[in-house]
């Protein structure tokens, strides 16, 4: 029987503690469907990095807005995550997605987040519509990564 997609959407404030707690919760939820621990670890890291970007860049420091994480599970096929904010984000830091995200020099004390994300996923896109900035990533997953009941 063809499995239906499963979708979750979560929101929290663009603050480090709130985002980290949310990401840990999401990974816990997703672990009901995905059994490959490596993938769960990758999801944990990439969502943490995506949220950290929003916390750092999306809103003024004294007025954190909302971060939304939408997760779509396509059993037997893929996980699609969309991390969104309604701040300035990528408008201030436009990316050329025609090229791979470069890795900063080893001595750099910041700037590794997007590189990490781009290397943990199969597809990476940035969408901007109205005031909403979305980082959308897709990880393709074969059937062996999913729980038998997924």
């Amino acid at each position: 029987m063809k499995q239906q997609p499963v979708k979750f959407t979560f929101c929290t404030r663009a603050e480090a503690q709130a985002c980290r707690a949310l990401v840990k919760g999401i990974v816990q939820v997703v672990s009901q469907w995905i059994v490959r621990q490596q993938l769960l670890d990758d999801l944990d890291l990439l969502l943490t990095e995506a949220c950290a970007n929003a916390v750092r860049h999306a809103y003024p420091p004294d007025s954190p807005g909302c971060v939304e994480i939408a997760v779509k599970l396509l059993p037997g096929k893929a996980v699609v995550c969309s991390i969104s904010d309604w701040g300035e984000g990528f408008r201030q830091c436009p990316l050329d997605l025609q090229k791979p995200i470069p890795l900063c020099p080893p001595e750099a004390e910041s700037g590794r987040g997007l590189y990490i994300i781009s290397n943990l996923v199969d597809k990476f896109a940035i969408l901007q519509k109205d005031n909403k900035n979305t980082l959308r990533v897709t990880i393709n997953l074969g059937s062996e990564a999913w729980a038998a009941s997924a």
């Binding site: 944990d44 890291l45 943490t48 990095e49 001595e107 750099a108 004390e109 910041s110 590794r112």
Partner: peptide
């Protein structure tokens, strides 16, 4: 148990 790019940046900073 978990380190992200911020944590790595801190280690790089101390190392430098």
């Amino acid at each position: 148990p978990f380190i992200d790019s911020s944590g790595i940046g801190l280690l790089v900073s101390i190392n430098s």
